[in-house]
Design a protein around this nucleic acid. Structure first.
Lengths: 346, 346
DNA sequence: CTCAAAATGAGTTGCGTACCTCAAAACACC
DNA sequence: GGTGTTTTGAGGTACGCAACTCATTTTGAG
């Protein structure tokens, strides 16, 4: 009836006895310190595996009195999504200080590869872990690899740099996000035929490009009655987004759907309402104060969201697990693609 | 540029000095031990607050050598959702044992109030925390309150007992889940007029009743062209669900939507396909191997899901925080209502 | 003022690990 | 066999707190 899921607690001393060596040797093996014969290493490792030994997290943490330092490298300038991440980190301050963790925010121009790379290089040695919103660019990739080589744990946040040797990526699969947006626009259009507009920040941004790719995939395969118009670039700015979209709406009377890939949501909504096109199915990204309002008003129909609070916490947990050498709970740290409509607004 | 989010690390000794008392007195205050004058308690508390003192989690954990025991009281019998929760707890075993936590699964008939209450009472004293899938019934409520009074931390899981003094509820808002289902059925029906069928396990179950309530709310308010048929009771069984639904489908040719509130999904899908009614918008609950397949095949259109992995982990984290006297990260532990469609299948 | 009760101080021990030193043993090489 | 090097053992200290004991001081009631 009652089934135990955990094993009994062993200590290093037990492992030492099992392996027939002293505590010091076990310690050397555990921390990859030199001066142990390969054969002895093997014996110790075997004893550890055989007993599924887990070092006591609390004891380990206590013993290494040095506090851990993590840096979050984020875009400078006002970006609601990033501000939310910052806010959630602030909410964790009690949790962090109880674990003697120091988290610092570093604002930089993440869109300039050389500036970003320089910011990353400057962190080397000072931090145990770095979470960065990074561009996928050779210079940045090199900076990340340098950090990794220096022993710093590196996590990419929101936007990945898959070609680098970063330890982990905390963010969503943007192609799947685009596919989801496509399915929503198509299904919510409810069989109407017509055109679909797409507004992005820039097709040069990896995440935007991936979303558009996924979006087009689904539209082409499943909604033959809907034709996707060429992508508008709004540079994530309200005014420009409004401008380009207004022009497009003027030219096409049969637009039934709209996918806003990045920010500039305010401008997009404005253009729609000024053109009196509130029947257009409008799908966008992220739950902010603005999109929340638009969803409640029925202007937006759905938002694709990656929970920023979850991302912030996952980044910290992953960095901590990496620093401690603990396994990562992949399932827990995976960021889901949330579909948010009016009735399941968080 | 670099802004620190945490404060410097103080220790109990610092607090003692600040408050002008000895370590022993601080310890007494911190653990609510008797023998301290109210005025002194106040002084110590003030020193703690003034410095936003956080006991070092690792040190505290290490000092209390006793391992913590948590019990998960779950329904007996084969229930895929519950099995998933069990599986995720199993995946955490490394994480658990590194923290010297013991989690035990206790299967019982959660639908029989007296049996459930007896199971709960039996736990008293042996466990630091209990997570229970519980019925909302006076007898159960009393058993929960008894546990709480005995100092055990109690968390309700999936289904709440709001009238009890349980410390926390880990699960979704079922009314909002029902509303979301309603919005999905209505929107995905795409303007078609007709009838909507609802299949539930039993209207006596609190969570099912709440979902139906939310569903009807939205349908009545927003989709006047759709009329909801009386709720069918399938007792969460495949065969019975298929039977009752098949009969209903035979009687009504104009059914355009279907909401399956509980389990029995296999039977519901079977009835639909045998009647050749694959155009019916089908919304159900939970992502299992079955619903995953149905979504991919296009039989189901959307599933409302509460991530069982998240629920399992949240329950453990909440119990641990409660046991340690740490604050709970409400935002983190909140269970979201996930809308899962084919393209954002996790 | 007296005396018991209450409040407080001072101190100890142990939790399991990290990190360090120093000496002893084992080994390799000529 | 002697030398130098590598490997191993033994042991200590520190980390911050929980939990406890025992002596001492303070307090309040009579």
């Amino acid at each position: 009836m009652a089934e135990t899921l955990t094993t009994t607690a062993l200590t290093l001393k037990d492992i030492a006895r099992e392996a027939g060596v002293s505590l010091a040797t076990v310690d050397r093996v555990l921390h990859n310190r030199p001066g142990v014969r390969p054969d002895t290493v093997r014996r110790v490792r075997e004893a550890i595996d055989r007993n599924a030994f887990q070092p006591h997290v609390a004891a380990a943490e206590l013993a290494r009195s040095r506090a851990r330092r993590f840096a979050f490298v984020m875009p400078s300038g006002p970006n609601p999504f990033m501000q939310q991440i910052e806010a959630y980190l602030g909410e964790m301050s009690g949790w962090l200080s109880a674990r003697r963790l120091k988290v610092e925010m570093i604002a930089t121009d993440v869109f300039d590869p050389s500036v970003l790379a320089a910011s990353l290089e400057a962190l080397s040695g000072d931090y145990d872990g770095v979470a960065a919103v990074a561009l996928d660019h050779p210079t940045v990739r090199a900076a990340i690899n340098d950090l990794v080589d220096a022993g710093t744990k590196v996590v990419t946040l929101v936007s990945d740099v898959p070609s680098s040797r970063r330890h982990h990526y905390v963010g969503i699969d943007n192609i799947a996000a685009g596919r989801t947006a496509g399915a929503l626009v198509g299904r919510l259009a409810g069989g109407r035929a017509g055109k679909v507009a797409v507004v992005a920040g820039s097709q040069g941004l990896r995440d935007h490009a991936e979303r558009i790719f996924g979006f087009n995939q689904v539209m082409a395969a499943e909604f033959p009655d809907l034709s996707v118009l060429p992508v508008l670039e709004g540079r994530d700015e309200d005014s420009r987004s409004e401008q380009v979209l207004a022009r497009l709406l003027g030219r096409h009377a049969d637009i039934v759907g709209l996918y806003n890939v990045g920010a500039g949501t305010q401008g997009v909504a404005q253009a729609l309402s000024e053109a009196g096109r509130d029947k257009v199915v409008f799908v966008g990204h992220d739950v902010t104060a603005l999109t929340r309002r638009l969803l409640l008003q029925g202007v937006m129909d759905a938002a694709i969201s990656q929970n920023p609070g979850h991302e912030a916490r996952a980044a910290v947990r992953v960095l901590l697990a990496l620093a401690r050498g603990e396994p990562i709970l992949r399932e827990q740290e995976k960021i889901r693609i949330d579909i948010v409509m009016r009735d399941n607004l968080p």
